[in-house]
Design a binder for these strands. Structure first.
Length: 224
DNA sequence: CCAGACGTTGTT
DNA sequence: GTCTGG
DNA sequence: CCAGACGTTGTT
DNA sequence: GTCTGG
């Protein structure tokens, strides 16, 4: 993972593309490993399971952690303090309510310049011995323009200059860690309406990517 | 002291 | 593990 | 997040 | 309506 100056994955199966990531599936993350000497890439299970949980199933509903409370919530605070990671993606999906009538509109959000989106993540280890499972969660915050067009929350996006701070490689205070990206950086987001097929995680593959690629930006008021 | 909770999303 | 409620 | 299920008995 | 699975 040259983009992140990270090594790996060394022990997991090679990374393969995922066009529709579901909670509880493995996702690549970048984190700092003292024993391996720097930034490493590993596949972690999406949906953070606190170490004290009695079972893995709670992870399905721990896919996000609110920036407003991540430092104090028992389920997240130790991971926030000591186990932060980067979660890279080409983009992500959001769903907006249709103003008139039932149903939802799916959207694919990407960087206009084709660059990666990097989400602020947390990781945790659950279990012991052979049962050890590493899990992760993505921090969310209030949406800012232009993302407010489709949703009132968004992942905490980290421009490249904030990666080292999030990973704990350079000092920063808690408020700065959780600050949203600048309006200028957010202006580089592209929001495209996509078909409802993305709503079912069984739909996954290059074919789904093609459907997403065919979409072009459309002014919101022409959609409904 | 022990028992029990520990989370987010969205929508109403 | 650690905090809150009883 | 959305899609899809939504149950009990007993036995291993 | 609400929970589980992906």
């Amino acid at each position: 993972m040259a983009e992140f100056d990270a090594i790996g994955p060394e022990f997991d199966e090679p990374l393969r593309p995922d066009y529709n990531v579901a909670p509880t599936t493995q996702v690549p993350v970048v984190r700092v490993s003292a024993s391996r000497g720097g930034r490493v890439v590993d596949s972690l299970r999406w949906g953070l399971v606190p170490s004290w949980s009695s079972d893995l199933s709670v992870g399905a509903r721990m896919i996000n952690a609110r920036a407003e409370s991540v430092a104090t919530k028992p389920a997240f605070r130790s991971a926030f303090a000591r186990r932060r990671c980067l979660v890279p993606a080409d983009g992500w999906y959001e769903w907006s309510a249709r103003p008139d009538g039932p149903g939802k509109q799916a959207w694919y959000l990407t960087r206009e310049d084709g660059g990666s989106c990097v989400f602020a993540g947390l990781w945790e280890v659950w279990g012991s011995g052979d049962e050890k499972v590493a899990t992760c969660s993505i921090v969310t915050t209030d949406a800012l323009a232009p993302l407010t067009e489709v949703h009132h929350r968004m992942p905490l996006l980290l421009p490249r200059e904030r990666w080292a701070e999030w990973l704990g490689e350079s000092p920063v205070d808690a408020d700065a860690l959780l600050a949203p990206p600048s309006p200028e950086w957010l202006a580089g987001m592209e929001l495209r309406p996509v078909g409802s097929a993305v709503g079912n995680v069984r739909n996954n593959g290059p074919q789904l990517q093609a459907a997403v690629d065919r979409s072009t930006p459309v002014p919101l008021d022409t959609l409904f």
